[in-house]
């Protein structure tokens, strides 16, 4: 059982590393933000799996904190980023 659980954890890690490409590529700031959100969720899942697989229940608390705090970045971002910003990179719009 543990082999499967840790295997799934490893699979999810590979998955999320692949998902990082979206942070790389953008093209808009929102895409990058969304990708980091995916990262938070998958990180939570990995922690839950590790908690079971390594029989360390304290890791569930870390997962809990992950789940609680993952949305902070997105909320701060949408509430603080000027909508009409035309600066490149962090823009809502794709720029070339």
């Amino acid at each position: 059982m543990n082999v499967l659980i840790l295997g799934v954890a490893f699979f999810l890690l590979v998955n999320v590393v692949a998902g990082l490409v979206r942070v790389w590529r953008g093209p808009t700031a929102l895409d990058r933000m969304l990708a980091s959100q995916l990262f938070g969720t998958t990180g939570t899942a990995i922690l839950l799996l590790l908690a079971e697989g390594l029989s360390n229940p304290a890791l569930r608390d870390v997962a809990l904190v992950f789940a609680l705090l993952a949305p902070i970045a997105t909320v701060v971002f949408v509430r603080r980023w000027p909508l009409s910003s035309s600066a490149n990179g962090g823009s809502f719009h794709e720029h070339e």
């Binding site: 990082l20 942070v23 790389w24 953008g26 700031a29 990058r32 933000m33 990708a35 980091s36 990262f39 938070g40 990180g43 992950f66 970045a73 490149n88 990179g89 962090g90």
Partner: peptide, 15 residues
């Protein structure tokens, strides 16, 4: 290249 990306990646780095 752009700082916003760097910062999102920094958050990912923390995770």
């Amino acid at each position: 290249q752009d700082l916003f990306q760097a910062i999102v990646l920094f958050i990912v780095f923390g995770l």
